[in-house]
Design a protein around this nucleic acid. Structure first.
Length: 725
DNA sequence: AATATCTTGCAGTCG
DNA sequence: GCAAGATATT
């Protein structure tokens, strides 16, 4: 056996991990230390050297992208396809198990997956149906509550209200919501994981089968596992399964969706004597970039402790740009990318990272004006577009008549004379009898409907039945195109004025194309094509787009950048309130997670790193002001080269527009203004801050100042004694 | 019941 | 500044 290709080019620590004995192993892998490489080579090692069948290996990741990459790298290394190797995301694998064993966990064969948007709609509907006040019982909070419970593996029936009225009501919502889902054959994301766990607990035979089968369970990004995922893995591993976990506590950035970094320590408790390997040598970034990353993350407490190092050279300094506003920021970055391209580099090697999706817009505008090709990851994904979800709702209802979420969505779209009054009767009847809307509608809601309304509803039911019947023997893409056409959706959008309708029709055409190109992966064994397609849409939401070969600038959130690397990286909008985000700023745990996110961002850069922040930014249609993020100050000054606009603050350096300094509507003119928006000030007690807003003139004028540590406050000018900086 | 117009809440990050 | 939901109008 020639093991050279598997071990070649690995450093000592990597080699130790790859060739570890068949015992539990935890790899603490710093950013850029070859984490994926170790996983890929470990699997190759198991197959080639240890002669483990690919069938006996399970590899779990968090994103579809990571799963696809892992599979392709394994196949490349082994030079053979390994279709029977299970590689996938937690959600994807859970889905696969539930399809196989739907009966054992009490799900109908045609169960459908709902995304968080569908989930929220269902909850809104539920709150309304119960005549509850949605300002007291905020649907979003209920949704958060339900998901948090599921992430922790709790069912409503097992929960204690602790004598707390609010909590008792939340638990009731959880129970009611679950009843609706069960009745409708709907499964949300958290439910996939929870049911997969219950599958183990309630079916020892099935569990035994998978325990015997998966001798080796490899997990990527272990720091992101939540309680239920950990439990699922733990049970699967049983007494004999061998976990091989790779993770980095410094890159734990999913606490908000239930991830538990503690799982890394817990693994060491649950598997005493687990072998721990640390990977600290970085192969990705220059020394300056690493020093910056180390310095920033050093401000966090309770780390497992790792320090990245490199044999490489210092490289260029980290460049910090202080922009006037977001347009100036975008213009500056565009200029730097143009220089980069002029030097013969690829646009695809450039990434712009930001905290929130909405920030992409300023860049899209600047790039569009400068004919700079770009690609935005995330944001509104294809399968999340309203018109696509409408079309999918038809298909879902054809598959599963009990799907209340889809029923609600399309029962009167396009309009067919079924108004809210009639629908409320149908809803109430369904609720009273605990049946899906479809059946309630069939019963014509107990004869309470006017004959006109009953006819309209009858016509809708008949339409779905006819569609299902007429298309059942067609190819998937014909099914889709048939449905889109006959449902009246195309005609509906044709009537829309403006270009909007056209764009929607184009998207619907695109959906047909997507169906045409859809290939169920081997895992979707025996599933009807439509079922597989619907699940694919829910789980992958259309991330992989076709034009990935075009050389374009990559734009994405810091979260979705994890696991990727780029020679040139821009981190934009690094301002207090935006990054760290204002919702985390006053919470030490949240702030540390933001800092880890910053660490993730910095360590994406291979050669050059730019960090930018803007004085002024348009958010929600109004101007806001902020100061540079604390994270910038945490980078040692000797690593930083500051770039300032040529002209002083408040004058756009790159802003080509001629619009006057922005003032809020109705505000006093600048001559009588007490103070300039964006002005940096110092207050005797509150420290330094930035002027956000003001009211009135003269000594009675009030100004709103956003203080660095004290947050935002309104002050009366004549008393505040502000020092202008 | 359908359409036009106004109001409100939103955009924090993901599968 | 935009889209979904609420309210007014036809």
């Amino acid at each position: 056996m020639d093991v050279t290709p598997i071990l070649d080019g690995l450093n000592d620590a990597q080699r130790e991990a790859v060739t570890a004995a068949a015992d539990p192993t935890l790899v603490l892998a710093g950013a850029g230390s070859g984490k994926t490489r170790v996983l890929v080579h470990r699997i190759a090692w198991l197959i080639e050297v240890e002669q483990v069948s690919p069938l006996g290996i399970l590899a779990v990741t968090f994103t579809n992208k990571a799963a696809a990459e892992m599979r392709s790298r394994i196949e490349k290394l082994l030079d053979m396809p390994v279709g029977n190797l299970w590689v996938g995301t937690f959600h994807g694998l859970a889905h696969r198990l539930l399809r196989r064993h739907h009966h054992e966990v009490g799900l109908p064969q045609g169960f459908q997956i709902i995304d968080s948007d569908d989930q929220l709609r269902l909850i809104k509907r539920m709150v309304k149906a119960q005549d509850m006040d949605d300002t007291t019982w905020v649907p979003r909070e209920i949704q958060y509550f339900i998901n948090a419970q599921k992430d922790e593996g709790r069912r409503a029936a097992n929960m204690d209200d602790r004598g707390d009225f609010t909590r008792a009501q939340m638990i009731k919502f959880y129970r009611d919501y679950q009843e609706i889902c069960d009745r409708s054959g709907l499964v949300d994301f958290a439910e996939l994981l929870l049911r997969a766990h219950e599958l183990w607990l309630q079916n020892p035979d099935i569990l035994g089968h998978y325990q015997r089968r998966f001798q080796h369970v490899l997990v990527d990004e272990f720091q992101d596992t939540n309680t239920i995922q950990y439990a699922w893995l733990r049970v699967l591993s049983g007494k004999t399964g061998i976990p091989f976990a790779v993770g980095d506590d410094d890159q734990s950035i999913y606490g908000w969706r239930g991830a538990r970094v503690e799982n890394m320590q817990r693994l060491q408790t649950d598997f005493p004597g687990i072998k721990v390997v640390k990977l600290e040598q970085n192969y990705r970034s220059t020394a300056n970039i690493l020093k910056a990353a180390n310095a920033v993350i050093d401000n966090n407490s309770g780390r497992l402790g790792k320090e990245l190092w490199t044999e490489g050279n210092a490289g260029e300094p980290i460049r910090v740009y202080n922009a006037y506003n977001e347009r100036d920021e975008a213009a500056f970055i565009t200029g730097r990318i143009q220089d980069w391209v002029a030097q013969g580099n690829l646009r695809a090697d450039v990434a712009i990272l930001y905290r929130s999706n909405a920030q992409s817009r300023a860049f899209e505008e600047a790039f569009f004006q400068n004919s700079m090709p770009y690609r935005v990851y995330g944001g509104l994904r294809f399968f999340e577009r309203a018109e696509i979800k409408d079309a999918m709702a038809y298909l879902r209802l054809m598959e599963n008549r009990d799907d209340d979420a889809s029923f609600e969505r399309i029962v009167n779209l396009p309009t067919r004379g079924i108004g809210d009054a009639s629908l409320n009767i149908v809803r109430e009847y369904a609720r009273a009898n605990a049946i899906p809307l479809w059946h309630s509608a069939m019963a014509a809601a107990g004869g309470q409907l006017s004959s006109r309304a009953a006819n309209a509803i009858q016509a809708f039911l008949a339409l779905i039945d006819t569609l299902a019947n007429d298309t059942k023997n067609l190819d998937l893409h014909e099914q889709v195109s048939h449905t889109i056409e006959r449902s009246g959706l195309i005609a509906h959008h044709k009537k829309e004025k403006g270009e909007r309708g056209e764009a929607r029709i184009e998207n619907l055409d695109e959906l047909i194309t997507a169906a045409q190109g859809f290939e169920p992966d081997d895992s979707d064994e025996k599933l009807p094509e439509l079922t597989a397609f619907l699940a694919h849409a829910a789980l992958e939401s259309g991330e992989e787009q076709a034009d990935k070969w075009e050389d374009c600038v990559q734009m994405m959130t810091l979260h979705s950048a994890k696991g990727l690397e780029f020679p040139l990286v821009f981190i934009a909008g690094v301002e207090e309130g935006l990054f760290p985000h204002k919702r985390s700023i006053n919470d030490p745990t949240g702030l540390e997670e933001e800092r880890r996110l910053c660490y993730v961002g910095i360590t994406r850069a291979m050669q050059q790193l730019y960090i930018s922040h803007a004085e002024q930014r348009r958010l929600w249609g109004t101007e806001t002001y902020a100061q540079a993020s604390r994270f910038i100050r945490e980078i040692p000054a000797e690593l930083v080269e500051e770039i300032r606009p040529k002209i002083a603050v408040s004058r756009p350096a790159y802003d080509s527009g001629t619009r006057p300094a922005v003032r809020r509507p109705g505000a006093v003119t600048s001559s009588e203004a007490p103070i300039k928006l964006g002005q940096h000030v110092r207050h005797g007690k509150f420290g330094e801050g930035v002027v956000m807003n003001y009211e009135g003139t003269g000594p009675h004028a009030r100004v709103q100042v956003n203080f660095e540590y004290e947050g935002s406050k309104w002050l009366v000018m004549s008393y505040a004694n502000l020092e202008l900086l």
